[in-house]
Structure formats: structure tokens, C-alpha cells
């Protein structure tokens, strides 16, 4: 029996269970080192209040999560480069900026190269303590920025590139990108014809393309698992060279979802297997985030108007089945549902 507070840490190590564990943003029961950056009142708030993102914007949230974590990992020695897109437009309309960190926006398709230049400048000046992050939406990453991104990877420039993937060109009014999933409705993939919504293509799986460059670090994350995301940013910043983080950020406007469902949708994307969360070093998967509570894809689709043509009495169960098959394939490919699960903490 111990009630002496000085004994508490030792006991805490034995009692490996902390109520909300590492699922909630904060937890007074965790050791200070295990708490998230976001739970701290001293967090940077890299992107500040007053930005013009839509209600419930996943990208605004993801950017703060990632950059605040990077700020902690670099002890505040961080420079950010931003591609054109929602994030850029809603954060820096003259005369107001929401960024509390040094930030540079050049063009839509060149953020990786601009970041290379920034990184080179720091290296040549002997200021390698100052680290560089580049960020873009999925369009700026998988489409128009793909060339410069691949170049940056190939040269292994010391840049962490973060893609905030909301699966389309939202800033211009919700058009399709190469990251738009099959069957989703966008302004350029309307729900007409035999294959309503976005046609089933081959997909453009940028994390795996990044892995093919054998760069030091590739990871995926969602805004639904903050601890995981922050840990990955921290890991990324502990390494040098080209690193890639692909963050899934639901878009209430573009997906036709309620503004309060942003995190829930991200969680469902992970727990259906549609968005596998994993990390890889030097081209080899080193870790996957297992599905904690599996959900069928229909549960995810039902919450979004972009899939409204697939569900309900006049829906398309055949197409839902194809989407389910994609999720199932991810589960197999990454081993997202291990047979035996430990109870309690995700340790």
C-alpha cells in the first residue's frame, strides 16, 4: 500500500492503464514526457486564431498538430514553406497572417524545391539547428507538386514534407485530384453514368511512392490520433534527410459532412482500413497502427454527401463492395487487424 506521492511514478509504471490512456489529447495521469504537445497551454499555436478555414477544418487542425510538434522537436528552430491551397489562402489573406512561425509561400507546385533552397541556405550558413518543413494539400503533393517532391526525395534534402490530404481540390471548389477516392463525388466527377463519382483508377499512393525513394522516413497519420501523429513528427525531426508525412484531414465542406464529424471521420477512415496508418524507414514498413475497433466502410460512407449515391435504398451496394474490398486489401497488406490484441494500453 502506497499513498505517498513520491511512490506514484513507480506504481504508475506497474499499473499500465491511464483511463483515457493515450487516446485523448491530454491525460493528467501520464508522465509529463508522455503528454502531447497539444495538451500544453504553452504550445506554439503555429497557426493562430482568426484564420479563415471553414468550420471544423481538418487541415487547420492537422497543420497545428504537426507544426506545433515540430516546433517542440526543434526547440522552436523551424522554418515552414507552404504550397498554394486552402491552407495558404485561409491563413494569410492580406493584411492578416495566422502563422506564428517563419513561413514562406511561393507557388502551388514548388514547395518541395523551395524548401530545398531554404534548407540549403541554412546548411551553407552553418545553421543546421534550424530545420525546414514544407507543407501542401494533396493537390500540391500528389499532382502539381509531384515532380519537385520526387526530386527533393531523390536528393535526400533535409526537409520534412507534410501532405495534408483532404482528397481533392477544395480551395477551388471541390474538384478531383489524384488523391480523390473512387466513387467520390466532386465538381469534376459528378454522379452520373454507370460509374457515378470518381472512376475507379489505379490510385496514386504517395506514401508508397515515397518509400520507393528509400528516404529515411515515411509515415501516415490522421487527425484522429494525436499521440501517433506527434510521435511521428518527433521521429521525423530526429532524422536528417528527406522525410514524408501524409496526414489525413477530413474536409467538412468538400465531403459534405457535418462540421463536428471531422475527427470522427478520420478515425473511421483508419478503422475501416481505407486509410492505413503506418510508418516506414528506408523503404521498409517498421510499424502499423492496428485497427482498434473495426468498422465497415459503409459506416464511413454514410456520413458524407460525396458518397450519398452509394448508400441507402437507392444506393449501389456493388460499388460499396468494391470500396470495402479496397479497405480489406489494405488490412491484409499492412496487417491492420492482428489476431491477438493486448488489452489496455497501446504500448
Amino acid at each position: 500500500m502506497s499513498h505517498d506521492p513520491t511512490d506514484a511514478p513507480a506504481l504508475d509504471q506497474r499499473v499500465h492503464f491511464y483511463q483515457v490512456g493515450s487516446f485523448a489529447v491530454g491525460n493528467r495521469l501520464l508522465n509529463a514526457d508522455d503528454r502531447t504537445v497539444q495538451s500544453s497551454a504553452q504550445r506554439t499555436n503555429s497557426i493562430d486564431s482568426g484564420h479563415r478555414a471553414c468550420q471544423g477544418c481538418g487541415e487547420a487542425l492537422g497543420a497545428r498538430y504537426a507544426l506545433d510538434a515540430a516546433m517542440r522537436a526543434t526547440n522552436g528552430r523551424l522554418l515552414a514553406v507552404n504550397a498554394t491551397g486552402c491552407l495558404e489562402v485561409f491563413s494569410t489573406p492580406y493584411p492578416e497572417t495566422s502563422w506564428r512561425i517563419p513561413w514562406l509561400h511561393s507557388l502551388f507546385g514548388n514547395a518541395p524545391a523551395v524548401a530545398t533552397g531554404v534548407s540549403a541556405a541554412m546548411r551553407v550558413k552553418g545553421r543546421e539547428d534550424v530545420r525546414v518543413v514544407a507543407q501542401a494539400g494533396d493537390g500540391g503533393t500528389v499532382d502539381i507538386g509531384f515532380g519537385t517532391l520526387s526530386g527533393m526525395f531523390e536528393r535526400n534534402d533535409d526537409v520534412l514534407f507534410i501532405c495534408y490530404d483532404n482528397e481533392g481540390y477544395m480551395n477551388t471548389g471541390v474538384q478531383r485530384s489524384a488523391a480523390t477516392p473512387p466513387a467520390a463525388r466532386t465538381a469534376t466527377t459528378d454522379v452520373v453514368g454507370d460509374e457515378p463519382g470518381n472512376p475507379f483508377g489505379q490510385g496514386k499512393d504517395l506514401p508508397r511512392i515515397a518509400m520507393a525513394h528509400d528516404i529515411p522516413y515515411v509515415a501516415t497519420a490522421t487527425v484522429a490520433d494525436l499521440h501517433d501523429l506527434e510521435r511521428k513528427v518527433e521521429r521525423a525531426m530526429s532524422l536528417r534527410g528527406a522525410r514524408y508525412l501524409h496526414v489525413f484531414v477530413p474536409c467538412p465542406l468538400g465531403w459534405g459532412a457535418a462540421s463536428n464529424e471531422t475527427i470522427h471521420l478520420a478515425r473511421l477512415a483508419q478503422s475501416t482500413g481505407l486509410f492505413p496508418v503506418f510508418e516506414a524507414e528506408r523503404g521498409v514498413v517498421t510499424n502499423v497502427l492496428p485497427i482498434r475497433r473495426w468498422s465497415p466502410v459503409e459506416e464511413y460512407l454514410t456520413l458524407q454527401r460525396r458518397y450519398a449515391h452509394l448508400v441507402g435504398p437507392r444506393g449501389r451496394p456493388d460499388i460499396v463492395a468494391r470500396l470495402q474490398a479496397i479497405a480489406d486489401a489494405n488490412v491484409v497488406r499492412y496487417g491492420l487487424l492482428p489476431d491477438e490484441r493486448n488489452d489496455g494500453e497501446d504500448d
Binding site: 485523448a24 489529447v25 491525460n27 495538451s39 487547420a60 497545428r64 471531422t262
Partner: peptide
């Protein structure tokens, strides 16, 4: 119970943590 979720998940940093 002060899990910081509201403080963390607000995209607009509109939650103030009072300690």
C-alpha cells in the same frame, strides 16, 4: 476531467486552458 480534448481538437484555438 480535464483530458484536454476540447483544448486540443479545436481548429480555431478557441479553447482556453485555465490550469
Amino acid at each position: 476531467f480535464e483530458c484536454d480534448n476540447c483544448f486540443g481538437v479545436c481548429p480555431d484555438n478557441a479553447v482556453v486552458k485555465l490550469g
